[in-house]
Design a protein around this nucleic acid. Structure first.
Length: 422
RNA sequence: GGAGGACUCGCAUAGCGGCCGAGUGCACCGGUCUUGAAAACCGGCAAGGGAAACCUUCGUGGGUUCAAAUCCCACGUCCUCCGCCA
């Protein structure tokens, strides 16, 4: 949710942002009109309410005939107050509903355009030349089978498409990745968190996942709860309706959780292997900071993501995601894409978004310093999403015989230097 | 799942349907005193809207009433006991 006062004063800026995202521009004027109606109704209600408060007090003090007369008046006024209050509530609801549909204001530095219009910021590492090594790389499905690490066939049998088992060294690799990730996060000042993955509508709504992204969310109708697609949701909602002291900022959490995604509308996309699955585990970084520090914090999150990929010895590039491809909460988003040899392409493995005060306003999270109480800024970034990282590691570090070398950083966590064939 | 009890300003608590947006203690902030600190004393101290008057918020949502923290209903959360269970 953006600041309604900002919208009143700068409607052009908001219109431009909506346009840049390829979203509804007219809604800005609808919101302004609804806001005016709402405020008029509020003033009317408050005036009547004040009268009623005064009158009610005099009723309490009055006696006899005087009291009877006052009561008649009061009764009439009470009806008016009730009507005005109903109208106020309706108009407030309407204005809020419209405001919630509005996406966050674009960062002026974010590239404008659709999915294809990203800007590549840098390349780190060089894709390996398998021809020079004298063999054709196997894809992660094949390697996973050879190593006894990934079983997609039984995954499909038991749970349907886009499901899989991590077995043997595959399971061990997940533990190693998680442990390494948590250890680096601790070093960087994060508090480790294992959050609930089943959350209520307020948490889902507040983080902005029930808008355009709603079709990708699993809902347990019977109990009115949702399965989260990322621990961003429970981490952001953790401080819902709270006021944080300024001296505790930035507040950084590293959340480890399972993530559930329906992957609706991705038929035929990445059907092979574990690039796109319904369930996976992820270590997510989440920061609460002062709005003026958000840009710097965003760079820090990106830096930590880069360090992780570098430690995994995987070539990658960093892209500045274009306006039309940002989530509704983000003002700017950087993706890291790892080189996937068998696809001859860079594929997204992590992503970091600056949501400024957008989520915090929806979740009613503020911070307090000497100047008063203000909305806080929230940012999130993937430290490691397990399946995609497994894909990148297996494919990039494979040998001609199908064995896979373990990156040095993970060796202490795995107790082995190489994944052998089973 | 069943039976009881509770939910008030950071924490703890007071609160006869009107004098309660709400007292007290602790914590916190400012001041006096002190070489400094502690203690003592004085003042401040929930949030939102509004230029202000003022309005809203006593778990949430409804209802009764001229008037609700206070009465009624539903839901939520927590606690105790019973049952079941990883």
């Amino acid at each position: 949710m953006i600041d309604i006062k900002f919208l009143r004063d700068n409607p052009d800026v908001v219109r431009a942002s909506q346009k840049g995202r390829g979203e509804n521009v007219e809604i800005v004027d609808q919101i302004i009109a609804a806001d005016e109606r709402k405020r008029a109704a509020l003033t009317e209600f408050e005036t009547l309410r004040q009268e009623q408060n005064v009158l009610s007090k005099s009723v309490g003090a009055a006696k006899g005939d005087e009291k009877t007369a006052l009561l008649a008046n009061a009764k009439e006024l009470a009806d008016k107050v009730k009507a005005a209050d109903t109208k106020r509530a309706e108009l407030e609801e309407e204005a809020k509903k419209l405001l919630l549909q509005l996406s966050n204001l674009l960062d002026t530095e974010a590239p404008i355009g659709g999915e294809e219009d990203f800007v590549t910021l840098e390349h780190v590492g060089t894709p390996r030349d398998f021809a020079k090594d004298g063999f054709e790389p196997r894809d992660h499905v094949e390697l996973g089978k050879l190593l006894g690490a990934i079983d997609t066939e039984r995954g499909a049998k038991v749970a349907g498409s886009r499901s899989y088992y991590l077995t043997g060294v595959g399971a061990l690799l997940e533990f190693a990745l998680v442990n390494y990730a948590i250890q680096s996060a601790l070093k960087n000042g994060f508090s480790p968190v294992i959050p609930p993955v089943l959350v209520n509508p307020a948490a889902m709504e507040g983080t902005g996942f029930l808008g355009q992204a709603a079709e990708n969310v699993y809902r347990i109708e019977k109990d009115d709860v949702y399965l989260v697609g990322t621990s961003e949701v429970p981490l952001a909602a953790m401080h819902m309706d709270e006021i944080l002291p300024a001296e505790k900022l930035p507040l950084r959490y590293a959340g480890y959780s399972t993530c559930f995604r329906r992957e609706a509308g991705t038929y035929g996309k990445d059907t092979r292997g574990i690039i796109r699955v319904h369930q996976f585990d992820k270590v997510e970084m989440f920061s609460f900071c002062k709005p003026e520090d958000a840009k710097e914090e965003h760079q820090r999150l990106l830096q930590w993501e880069k360090e992780f990929l570098t430690a995994m010895e995987i070539p990658f590039r960093v892209i500045d995601v274009a306006s039309g491809d940002l989530g509704s909460s983000a003002v700017r988003k950087f993706d890291i894409e790892a080189w996937i040899p068998t696809q001859g392409a860079y594929r997204e493995v992590t992503s970091t978004s600056n949501c400024t005060e957008f989520q915090a306003r929806r979740l009613n999270i503020r911070y307090k310093d000497a100047d008063g109480t203000k909305a806080i800024a929230t940012l999130n970034g993937t430290l490691v999403a397990i399946p995609r990282m497994i894909v990148a590691i297996l494919e990039n570090h494979q040998n001609a015989d199908g064995t896979v070398n373990v990156p040095a950083a993970l060796q202490p966590f795995l107790g082995m230097k190489k994944f052998e064939l089973v």
